[in-house]
Design a protein around this nucleic acid. Sequence first.
DNA 1: TGCAGTGTTGCTTC
DNA 2: CGAAGCAACACTGC
Length: 289
Amino acid sequence: MPELPEVETIKRDLEKEVVGRRITAVEGDWPKTVSEPEFAIFQKEVTGRKIKALKRRAKNLIISLDKEYLLVHFKMTGHMLVADAGELHKDHWAVKEASSPLADRVNQFIHLAFYLDNGKVMALSDLRKFARVSLVSKERLDTLLAHLGPEPLEDDFDLELFKKQLSGKKGYIKQILLQQEVVAGIGNIYADEILFDAKILPLRKVTDLSNIELKKIYKSIVKILSKAVDLRGTSTSDFRDAAGEKGKYTDIRKVYRRTGEPCLAGCGGVVQRVKISGRSAHYCPNCQK
DNA sequence: TGCAGTGTTGCTTC
DNA sequence: CGAAGCAACACTGC
């Protein structure tokens, strides 16, 4: 699931490959991938534009063109690949070379492709077709992103700001960490990993947490997300970087999708899973209080 | 075999 | 108003 570390990985990969390039053609086989404007107009408007810069805001990738912006949200299974245009079979949107990491099955679901003036292609692969791309003005971009809370890896995200974002919030800490208006960019994987690191049970009510516990959660947010960016994200299922490769945080995760396995802190406990407002939460009942 | 589970977000329903 | 449920999809695992 592309959360903050995964989108940041894609952003950094693309930065090296596509900035300064001009888009020579746009093709797609699933028009709904483009939210706005209508697909044919999008195709016409984006063709010929130059890519100026890349940004990430929460789980969104923002591609600045010489005019307007491409706003990309990967949702569940989307990721952006860069390949030689010749590597793609245009007929069925699949990658040709079996030796390449791009040949991985999850990279074979290409629904939108931006051909570049250096013979490469920036391609959105998305098994479940939930990802969305928009071409928007600066004003529209700001409107669409206005609800988002602070970026947890920015300098201004300190303990006081975290507490302020939580004030007035009710419900379980796990549920609150997933709310993008509270802290931007945390999803199910890192919410579980953060709470394990902070030794706090996901079913704790936010209003019951002590100052010491809030500080632990704050520190774990910064620590875990930074570590995950360093390791290029988590690939328990579909996430891949721009080269089609898996993220390495998968190997050091402590609880996410480890139900029934021994706690890696060596406490003798077994990782449990519960449903919290429709989402799974993984935790160690020994380590987390 | 078939159906629940997977998880992000926005929209609908209560 | 806010919380809960569901739809958007497709594949995996039981």
